[in-house]
C-alpha cells in the first residue's frame, strides 16, 4: 500500500506521465531525448531555485526574494566580469557568498525579530531588485571565453539529446537536496519546524540555527540559479527573472509539498518544474497557442493540487477521529 505521505508525489508523477503521453500522442516528435534534454536545460535555473523553495516551504515559510536574487546575481556577474575584469570562477564564488549571506540575514530577522517570512522576504525581494538596478540598468552581455567553455560542455544522450552542464547541475542539486532532506539531521529539523514549531522547540530542535540555515540555503540556491541563468542567457539584466519566485512556489506545490509545511519531497518539486516546462514545450510544438496558456494550465493545476491536499488532510483527520471515538 502506498503511504498517504507519498500520495501527492505519486499523483504529480502520474499527472506528468499522462501529460507527456498526451503530448506524444499529438506530436510523436516529442518522444525524443532532445526534448527531454532541452526540458532540463531550459528549466535548470527554475529547478535549482525551486529546490531551495522546497526547503523553505517544508519548514512552513516562504521566500519571495529568489527571483530578485537571481536577477541581482546575473547583473552582479556581468558587471564584475565585464567591467571589473574578474575571472568568472572567482565571480561565481563571490556571488554565492553574497546570496547565501543575504538569505542567512533574512532567516535571522525572521527568527530573532519574530517577523513573518512573507514580509521579510518581500522586503528582501525589493532590496535585491533595487541593488541590481544600482549596479546597472542596462542589459550587460557577458563574452568571457570561460562562459563559452562552460556552455559547450554537455553529456550526449542516446538519441541525440544534449544534456548541458546547467541541466546536469540542476539534477545534481535535486539529488543532493533529496539526500539532505531525507538523510540528515538538518533535513529532519526542517520537517520538524514545518510540522509544529512549538513542539519542535520543546523537543530540542535548534530552531534559530535551522531557520537561518534554511533561508541561507535558499539564498545559496537562488545565487546558483542566478549563475545558471547567466550561463543560459550570457547576459545580466536587472529586470530578469521577475516573478520566478511564484513559478518556484507553483512547482513546489504541484510537486506535492504541503504549502503549510511539514510534508513533501524535493523530487516532487523537480516533477513540478518539468510539468511547467512540458506545457511550454507543448505550446511551442503547437505553434498557434498563446504562451499565456502555460499560466492558465498552471493555475488550474495549482487549484487541483491544493484541493487534493485538502482532501488528503480531511481523510487523515477523519480516520484519526474514527480511531479516537472507537468504542472500547
Amino acid at each position: 500500500m502506498i503511504r498517504a505521505k507519498y500520495l501527492p508525489l505519486m499523483t504529480t508523477l502520474v499527472v506528468f506521465v499522462l501529460a507527456y503521453a498526451i503530448c506524444i500522442a499529438q506530436f510523436p516528435a516529442m518522444w525524443s531525448t532532445r526534448v527531454v534534454a532541452n526540458l532540463l536545460t531550459d528549466n535548470a535555473f527554475l529547478g535549482i531555485a525551486a529546490v531551495g523553495m522546497t526547503f523553505v516551504i517544508l519548514s512552513g515559510g516562504i521566500d519571495l526574494s529568489i527571483g530578485s536574487v537571481i536577477g541581482f546575481t546575473g547583473v552582479f556577474l556581468a558587471v564584475v566580469i565585464e567591467r571589473a575584469g574578474i575571472h568568472p570562477a572567482v565571480a561565481f564564488v563571490l556571488a554565492l557568498v553574497i546570496a547565501t549571506g543575504f538569505g542567512g540575514v533574512m532567516g535571522a530577522i525572521i527568527h530573532y525579530l519574530k517577523m513573518p517570512a512573507f514580509i521579510v522576504t518581500l522586503a528582501g525581494m525589493f532590496f535585491a531588485r533595487g541593488m541590481a538596478f544600482v549596479l546597472s540598468t542596462d542589459s550587460v552581455p557577458i563574452s568571457h571565453p570561460f562562459y563559452g567553455e562552460l556552455q559547450s560542455l554537455y553529456f550526449k544522450l542516446p538519441g541525440g539529446g544534449r544534456l548541458r552542464l546547467i541541466g546536469l547541475v540542476m539534477l545534481l542539486v535535486v539529488l543532493i537536496g533529496t539526500i539532505v532532506a531525507q538523510r540528515t539531521r538538518f533535513g529532519t529539523n526542517v520537517y520538524a519546524l514545518g510540522g509544529n514549531l512549538q513542539s519542535a522547540e520543546l523537543m530540542g530542535v535548534p530552531v534559530a540555527r535551522t531557520t537561518i540555515g534554511i533561508y541561507a540555503l535558499s539564498g545559496f540556491l537562488a545565487g546558483l540559479a542566478g549563475i545558471v541563468f547567466s550561463l543560459y542567457t550570457s547576459a545580466g539584466y536587472s529586470l530578469a527573472a521577475v516573478g520566478v519566485e511564484l513559478d518556484a512556489i507553483a512547482a513546489v506545490v504541484i510537486g506535492g509539498t504541503l504549502l503549510t509545511g511539514g510534508a513533501g519531497f524535493v523530487a516532487g518539486t523537480l516533477i513540478g518544474v518539468l510539468i511547467q516546462g512540458l506545457i511550454q514545450t507543448y505550446i511551442v510544438f503547437d505553434g498557434s497557442l498563446s504562451s499565456w496558456w502555460t499560466k492558465i494550465v498552471i493555475g488550474l493545476l495549482l487549484f487541483a493540487f491544493i484541493a487534493l491536499q485538502r482532501a488528503i488532510l480531511w481523510l487523515s483527520e477523519h480516520r484519526a477521529g474514527a480511531l479516537r471515538t472507537r468504542p472500547a
Binding site: T188, Y191, G194, M203
Partner: peptide, 10 residues
C-alpha cells in the same frame, strides 16, 4: 507535543 508529520522513529 510531538511532530505528527515525522515518523515514530524520528
Amino acid at each position: 507535543n510531538l511532530l505528527p508529520n515525522l515518523s515514530v522513529a524520528e
